[in-house]
Nucleic acid binder design. Structure first.
Lengths: 334, 334
DNA sequence: ACTTAGCACTCGGGGATTGTGAGTGCCAGG
DNA sequence: CCTGGCACTCACAATCCCCGAGTGCTAAGT
């Protein structure tokens, strides 16, 4: 029911609208693209497309603009991911290569992505669960307060101060540290979480209360808070006239970790690029292009880009894909 | 040359304009404030104030609005910091009390400040130089790569991966770690930086290249990157119609660490609240209210709030002062 | 010397009006 | 099924006009 030409028309409408920001009419369509038919023909096609809900007119007798459904079709069937140029790939590589800590990698990734796409970039910290514990450090800060530092083989460092129920001397802390490391070193985090429960036995009665405080904090970090951290950047790209009124909503969403997580995609652990358009994101007029990154067959987290529904999907998808790949590489090496 | 009443007029203009966002005229001025004179008199006063550059009219025959110079006078002489209510103080306290790591403290502070002032909050990480090293951890990630973790007594954790020139076995790393801790543990960072230089002697020739790599990375972290990190939040408050066009500039500034640092105030280590208005900030139509926070006599870093020139200075200053105090307390305890 | 009332003047902003042009839908003929 | 032609529809910009808040000035009052 949508023949070849109608699809071409839709594609043309999307492309034109994305680049001009203005409703596109039948005349300019035939002019700008090599369609060998008259405007009137196009108009008929457009009428059909509109009836099917792929395009709409902002007001009677203005040009058409794509609807969410139109963009959806465009992304799914009418366009392909635009690969990065060699120069861009090189730039990505060198920009990320200089990173010297996990924080740094994430920060750079956000900047890079924001710059490449000229939109808001969102990056989730790599999940801990798949990585292994390299070292656990316990440092006494005060008689009843210790700092727990968890180091993983992916170079991630988690820290947390813990209030102890009883005062603890250096010796008991050292002991606890030894027990923890002996038992958990090298374990995958998911393993480790299970093992912690059996650990209480090895602790002398007198120190058990303290130990339990540490254990529960550790578990908390191991299991709970892993995938929570999300970072964004490139907010300046919101200043473009897009969004307009929705801007407040977007800014609000950016500062809510939970919402950000949701935007990156609830499930869909498939390695492909995910595109959520308009209403699908829960944010009016906003689309999200996201991807999973991480070593092959070992997805770690997600990253993506957030922009107006009217965005350059092929280009954005290309950038997201490229960055996801390189970050995955870097993390694997590290 | 500016008698009592003219100052009162200026104060009234600032207050009215801040609350209404609209140019204020002579009539409404006498109405809303208990000025026992006629509008005509006020007009004369306003003419003088305008001549002196404290107020201006957006266009002929509209009300007056304060100029930067007017706000300046208002802040310096016509207003006093508005103390927080007991309820607010309690809220601040409980909100910050739950923090369990330095990162968490900073994050919470930013949120708190943004929420209290309904503006953009900016918080600089506590400076390292005054704190002491509690522990240095060196973890091997790969034959030629180690992770350096620096823990201070303020609970701050700095991490960094280092590429080694030569492969290093566990033993040599352990040795290096021992040397570092023996020599630097408990030292103030500024001390430590100096001591590192003398450390090379204690390292066997064979491992010297590796050791130097670690040393220079350590120095880097110790000296250089300390005061760089600045975090902001509350960007959603920019969505208010203020700023308008300047919004882009502001968003841009927020993402540039260097600029943020500058906004917080180049020098002025005085413990007082600093207010920079309009042009003084380098950002059109933007003011910054900042303060130093940290233990008594031991300033650690700065925090502040960024908002439109037309802001509630007394209230904002009160909030900034209160938050700075509490954060100082928390950090001292921790 | 300062304050006040009165008055003429200014000008931004809102509302109504109009013209224009891009764009449409439809129809009749190829 | 495509096309040219044609009447129709609106958003938007430009123009105009009016209103009223607000001003500055002057002359009179204290």
């Amino acid at each position: 029911m949508l023949d070849e030409r109608k699809l071409a028309v839709l594609r043309a409408i999307v492309e034109d609208y994305v680049s001009t920001t203005e409703p596109v009419g039948s005349k300019s369509l035939v002019d700008r693209h090599g369609l060998d038919v008259s405007p009137a023909t196009i108009r008929n096609d457009m009428a059909v497309l509109e009836e099917q809900g792929f395009i709409a007119q902002p007001h009677t007798s203005a040009g058409r603009i794509p609807t969410d459904k139109g963009y959806r079709l465009f992304v799914d069937r009418l366009s392909s991911i635009k690969p990065m140029s060699a120069a861009e790939r090189r730039a990505i590589e060198t920009f990320l290569a200089g990173a010297y800590s996990l924080d740094d990698i994430v920060t750079r990734t956000v900047r890079l992505l924001a710059q490449l796409t000229r939109q808001v970039a969102v990056v989730q910290y790599p999940s801990l669960t798949r990585s292994a514990i390299r070292h656990i450090e316990l440092v006494s800060l005060a008689p009843q307060r210790v700092l727990l530092v968890l180091i993983t083989d992916t170079g991630r460092v988690e820290q947390r101060t813990i209030e102890l129920p009883d005062a603890a001397d250096d010796e008991s802390i050292a002991h606890l540290r030894a027990v923890l490391n002996a038992c958990l070193d090298g374990r995958r985090l998911s393993d480790a979480a299970r093992r912690v429960h059996g650990l209480t036995d090895r602790i002398p009665d007198a120190e058990r209360a303290n130990a339990n405080a540490v254990f529960s904090a550790l578990l908390d970090n191991l299991v709970e808070r892993n995938e929570e951290r999300v970072v964004f950047g490139g907010a300046k790209n919101l200043a473009a006239p897009d969004f307009g009124k929705g801007l407040r909503d977007v800014l609000e969403a950016l500062e809510e970790q939970v919402v950000l997580m949701r935007l990156l995609g609830e499930s869909s652990d498939s390695p492909a690029i995910t595109v959520r358009i308009g209403a699908e994101t829960g944010l009016l007029g906003t689309s999200v292009v996201s991807a999973v990154y991480g070593a092959a067959g070992n997805p770690m987290a997600k990253l993506g880009v957030l922009g107006p529904t009217r965005m350059d999907y092929p280009g954005t998808m290309g950038a997201v894909r490229a960055v996801a790949r390189y970050v995955g590489q870097i993390l694997q090496e590290a």
